[in-house]
Structures are given as structure tokens and as C-alpha cells.
Design a protein around this nucleic acid. Structure first.
Lengths: 211, 211
DNA sequence: GTTGACGTACGTACAGCGTACGTGACACGC
DNA sequence: GCGTGTCACGTACGCTGTACGTACGTCAAC
């Protein structure tokens, strides 16, 4: 028996195996051994199916929030939970990121993050700003990591940087070794630590002004 | 006479006017009043055309780098130059971000940024890490701003947050006013300042250890 | 037991897509 | 005049999303 969940699962499988471009209604129907139009009994259209994919992926984030832990540690955990899911569904990440979905699946992480930031001592305005900075950083990092790489950082460093003309790009040439190496986890944690520590300083300032 | 530049310009025009989904070879050919296949005399395929679009948009970033200015100010300027171009070609931003292009157009910003970070006193490793953090933050911010909104932040805040069940999402409900308001420029500058100041601290530490 | 309604799977059909291929018009060096 | 190239173009193929009509199951009411 066909079902929405089975269709979404098949879509995720196809995306992870063959990339987001390979997704077509016919492809997914074939994957499930059913006719194309049968899918439309459970999913209104392709766009909605991709939304469902994004939502499903997002809902699988495992937030093992420990209220007893220091809030900085909780921020780290939450950020890494995002990274982990992107690692688990690398090729779905771009799908998740490129669809602006409005659902409870998307709101749960926000809820958790705001709670943590409130515990850190930020008021509403600051908490939201901090949250947005974090989200921006995480999303940008994941895009680089997933290889969609919006940036100029070395996607295929060996090729990109090695061929650079030192006269035109002296810095890029000089820093080529560092540009080529890219331990995604290390890079992510570097920026994460940067942000968390900055946040800690701000939290103390806020507490100081207040009390 | 048809030319690669005219084709790319037409593609950008179509994207900005009707969105990236509206781009098709036929659509662009019609825009230029030529046959579809004529395009292929100047562009190998659609993918290459979109790459050219990304490259063209990227190359229009205006880096008015002032070597006399303090490096923190130069970092700010460069980051804002990115934001400005995304503002100028909002609907092309997703195209730029989603194609990993390897070209000099993409390397120039990296060159400038590395030079600035070197002036700040960072060695190669640190400079590259800092650069990556900045790129991640900028890319993530622009995605939110452009409305492709990878995040859960309020794309359509009035709708999204207003309907939230306070019992399920107490924090989101409580912070609704702050979540709803989103002055993109202000948010961007907040995070930018956060990063620049953190960077300044690091730079001092690095200088201290060194000298 | 018959009838009708309903949900589900399916096939057909259509407009649109990217692009491989062939054709014809024109400009050039010989 | 005659290859040889470049460029615009038309046709055609296999793909896409999906509107529509159809056929077969199950279940309720009579």
C-alpha cells in the first residue's frame, strides 16, 4: 500500500543516492514500483513532496538537550546537531536549505535555541539576533561542507588553487597549502567556538549592565 | 548579432524579473528574439550558462579597498560589498550560491580578504579559518535576506509566528515580537560587528604571542 | 444481494524542457 | 568558382510535471 511516508522515504533515498536533480515523479514511482499518477493520491505535487523531504530531514535532528549543562555547552550541542543531520543527509541539505518551510519541524530548533539563549541571560532582542547569527553561520558552513560551496574556498582545492597565477593572486598562492586543507569538522568547530566565546562575553556584559 | 554576453545578460534579466525557475533556453531565446539552438553557438549548455550568470554577478562586486584604512574597517567594507551585490541581484543570489564555480571572478574576493587578514596579523592557517567563518556567515545571512531563508527565522513572520501554539513553543511565542521584526541590514551588521570584534581580539592575542 | 459512493492505482495525453543533429545563409582565402 | 568556417535556425527525441478519465477494490445503506 502506497503512503505519503513511503513516497517521502523513497524521495530521500533517491536524492541521497543520485542527487537532487535526479528526483522526478517518474523516478520515484519506479523506485516504489507503482504508476506515476498514484503518487498524486498522497502528495499534491512535486514541490510539496520536496517540502516534505525537507521537513522529514529536519525533524530527525536529535536534540539531546541537557538542561543541567552550562548554556555554552548546550549551544555547542545544538549547533553540532544541525551539522550531524547534514552529514547524515548530505545531498538533502541543499533541498532543506533552499525551501523555506513553515512547519513545527522548523520551529522546534528555534524554540530550543531561544530557551538556551534566554538562560544565557539575553533578553528577547539579543537572543533573536544571536540566534540569527548562529543560523547564518551554520547554514553557510553546511553549504560549504556539503560541497555546494557557495564560497570560493577550495571545493576542489588541488585543482582550483594549484593553477592560480601567483602574479595575479599572490595571497591565494602564498596561502595555498592552508586553503587546500579543509577539515570540515575542525573548521566548523573553530567558528563555533569563536561565536560561543564571543557570546559568553556579551552575556557577561549584559548581566553586568543589568545587575 | 548574438553573443555570450548578451545571452548571459538576458538570463540575468529573466531571473531577476521572473525568478530562477523561469529560466529556460527557450525563454531566453525568446527574450533575445532568436531561435533556441542559436544559443548553443555561444554557450555549451544550460549549466554553463548559469555558471556564467553566477560569475558575472560575482564579478560586479565593487571592492573599493582602502589600504590606508584600519583592517577592521576593510573587513567591514568587503563584507558589505558582498551584501550589496546580493541586494542588487536578489534572485540571482541563490544561483550564485548554489553553483560551485571555479574562476578568477571567485578568487578575487578571496585574494582581497586574505591580504586584509594578513595585515591584521594572522598567519596563513588562522587567516584561512577566519575567512571561512566570514564567508559562512555572509552566505548564510544573504540566504536569509534574499528570502530563500534556509532558516526558521521569520520569512513571513506575521503568519509563521502568530499562529504558533504558546503551549508547544513558549519561547517562540514569548519572543514573537522580536522574531517578527527583522531589519536585514541591522541584523547583518550585528553579526558582522560581532565577528570583527572577536577577530580583533584574536589578532591582538596573536600579536602578543608573537612579539 | 444489490446498489451506489468512495478511495486508490493506473494509462493516456499535453505542454514544456534540454539538446543532438542536419540545413542553409553568409563570409572568407585560394 | 570553390572549399572551409561560422552562425542562425528547424526538426526531433527523450525527458519532465501533471490534468483528466478509467477501472478496480471496499464498505454502507437499502
Amino acid at each position: 500500500m502506497l503512503s505519503r511516508d513511503r513516497i517521502v522515504a523513497a524521495a530521500i533515498a533517491v536524492i541521497e543516492r543520485e542527487g537532487a536533480d535526479a528526483v522526478s515523479m517518474r523516478r520515484i514511482a519506479a523506485e516504489l514500483g507503482v504508476g506515476v499518477m498514484s503518487l498524486y493520491n498522497h502528495v499534491p505535487n512535486k514541490s510539496a513532496l520536496l517540502d516534505a523531504v525537507a521537513e522529514t530531514v529536519l525533524s530527525q535532528i536529535e536534540f539531546t538537550d541537557d538542561p543541567a549543562a552550562h548554556w555554552t555547552q548546550r549551544v555547542r550541542m545544538q549547533a553540532r546537531a544541525f551539522r550531524q543531520i547534514a552529514h547524515h543527509f548530505p545531498r538533502c541539505t541543499m533541498v532543506v536549505v533552499s525551501r523555506q518551510l513553515r512547519s513545527t519541524a522548523g520551529l522546534l530548533p528555534v524554540e530550543r535555541a531561544l530557551a538556551t539563549l534566554r538562560d544565557a541571560g539575553f533578553d528577547g532582542r539579543e537572543a533573536v539576533q544571536m540566534l540569527r547569527v548562529f543560523i547564518a553561520y551554520i547554514v553557510g558552513s553546511l553549504l560549504r561542507e556539503v560541497g555546494v560551496t557557495p564560497t570560493f574556498a577550495p571545493v576542489r582545492p588541488d585543482i582550483a588553487v594549484a593553477e592560480v597565477d601567483p602574479a595575479l593572486f599572490p595571497m591565494v598562492s602564498a596561502f595555498a597549502p592552508d586553503l587546500m586543507a579543509c577539515d570540515h569538522e575542525e573548521e566548523f568547530d573553530f567558528g563555533l567556538e569563536l561565536l560561543v566565546q564571543t557570546m559568553a562575553v556579551r552575556a557577561e556584559q549584559a548581566a553586568g549592565h543589568e545587575g
